[in-house]
Write a protein that binds this DNA or RNA. Structure first.
Lengths: 198, 198
DNA sequence: GTCTATATTGTGATAGAC
DNA sequence: GTCTATCACAATATAGAC
């Protein structure tokens, strides 16, 4: 995975533009201009636009999924790992807030890609679901289906970033710093919220 | 707003393709082919691709926002309207699951559009936030900031649809019917969940 | 590895016949 | 309203000089 400086600049510009404008919305020329290099170098390093996009998409996935995947597999109980998952996911989103919408848009266009991605990345919710179920069985009363609990958890962590422009404008009058502060707050707030619907 | 049959077919095909592939990813030719008409008719009816996209985007927004906006303004207390909002939003999503990702992607590419959209659609969270606050003050103890409550509510309603392919594959083994059933369940489940973090 | 030049196809848009 | 023909341009990609 050793990359030349040129290669890194291509990836950096491709990320920036693909994240913002999508695959079809970003031309090879746009990316080359942003990187300050000749357009044909993109073909030299990545052969085709599809392959360049694929490199960006994979990198985006790998900053998105592993935190989730590793915690799904972890030895900890759900109550233990849940706050860590929240912190990991929110921190990841804060670093690159455009990833969720980029990834979800691509998967929405090409849902057929999901099975292979799950296989490749070793995503298996079975362990986490089972642990959650056994944990619920210790407490009396009715409980949410474990799948619904995890869907809620992911929704609360990820959606506010996918909807960033909407929330910033509606709830923070366009004040970006206020939006960011509120997102950081959520690392502290969400564990409590989640506890209440386990 | 009376439309010829041709005009309706154009809009229907444009929605289908723009939702799936985005503006740049769908050509005028693609849309015309899907509608089964000559390509130049798109220009005849909508002049430019931008104007056609705009028509689709506005229509998507108008199926998305008003339920939210009207309830934000309603006379009901938060506890009263919250379950109705959940039902309205989820029903809307079930009818056209691709709208959220489409709208969020466009607003993520062009966040500058938000202020005008908010103005045009008369979205003002002030009333809802105030009502929620006064409602919280009746109960003892600490409470979530009202903005965080509403962000949570929207997250829980909308995200599972934006992430549809991911959730369907991971939690329902690709079984679409099971996914839909779970989403319908959420109309019943979410009010209880939300009650617990007001 | 990096450039220029070029091949080829696709795209949005319009003019004008019917 | 609907078609054919056409324009101007942008796109990806490759060949070949340096």
């Amino acid at each position: 995975m050793l990359q030349t400086e040129t290669e890194q600049r291509i990836i950096a510009s491709a990320e920036k533009l693909f994240y913002r404008k999508g695959k079809a919305g970003s031309s090879m020329q746009d990316i080359a201009d942003d990187a300050g290099i000749n357009r044909t170098l993109l073909n030299y390093y990545f052969r085709t636009k599809d392959q360049l996009f694929e490199a960006v998409f994979r990198k985006a996935l790998s900053g998105f999924v592993p935190g989730l995947a590793s915690l799904l597999k972890s030895d900890m109980s759900f109550r233990e790992y849940m706050p860590r998952l929240i912190e990991t996911v929110i921190d990841t989103m804060l670093e690159n807030p455009q990833i969720p919408i980029f990834v979800l848009q691509e998967l929405s266009s090409n849902p057929d890609r999901m099975p292979q991605i799950i296989k490749e990345m070793g995503i298996d919710p079975a362990v986490a679901l089972k642990k959650l179920e056994s944990e619920q069985s210790k407490a009396p009363g009715a409980h949410l289906a474990p799948r619904q609990v995890i869907i809620n958890l992911l929704s609360l962590c990820i959606f506010p970033f996918a909807a960033r422009p909407v929330l910033t404008e509606i709830f923070f009058n366009g004040d970006n710093a206020a939006y960011i502060a509120a997102m950081k707050d959520r690392k502290r707030l969400l564990p409590q919220v989640v506890e209440n619907f386990i």
